[in-house]
């Protein structure tokens, strides 16, 4: 399993498409709640998925295909959010990414379109 992280609009999905030769049909785009289809090669938008899980009180999945490409946004460099819901999301999502990264073979951070392997 490979994890790709980075800030908003940094080119995470573009990088993954090129690196792994992904077609649009390989990509599951999160944003439709706490249910995802982990049979897809690539799961994009982990932040939306985890946000929904936290809202619904579900544990977000840590098991994916062995060749899964997992993509999530880094949201951790601002001030502590005033809104308690966003605060809980930031904390829960951060802890989730740590657990997921520990299980992944590689972790790559995208900065202005450029990849940096950090695991």
């Amino acid at each position: 399993m490979d994890l790709i992280i980075g800030g908003a609009f940094q080119g995470k999905l573009e990088y993954a498409k090129e690196k792994y030769g992904l077609a649009e049909s390989d990509i599951f785009r999160c944003g439709g709640g706490a249910d995802i289809d982990a049979s897809f090669r690539c799961v994009y938008g982990l932040e939306d998925y985890v946000k929904s899980c936290l809202k619904e009180g579900k544990e977000p999945a840590l098991d994916f295909r062995p060749d899964a490409v997992l993509i999530g946004r880094e949201i951790f460099s601002g001030v502590v959010p005033v809104d308690p819901e966003i605060r809980r999301f930031r904390e829960g999502y951060g802890r989730y990414l740590q657990k997921l990264a520990a299980r992944c073979d590689t972790v790559t951070r995208i900065f202005c379109g450029l990849p940096q392997r950090i695991k």
Binding site: I75, F76, S77, I86
Partner: peptide, 8 residues
Amino acid sequence: FIYADAEE
């Protein structure tokens, strides 16, 4: 670099 906070 203004891309990595949790603000909406």
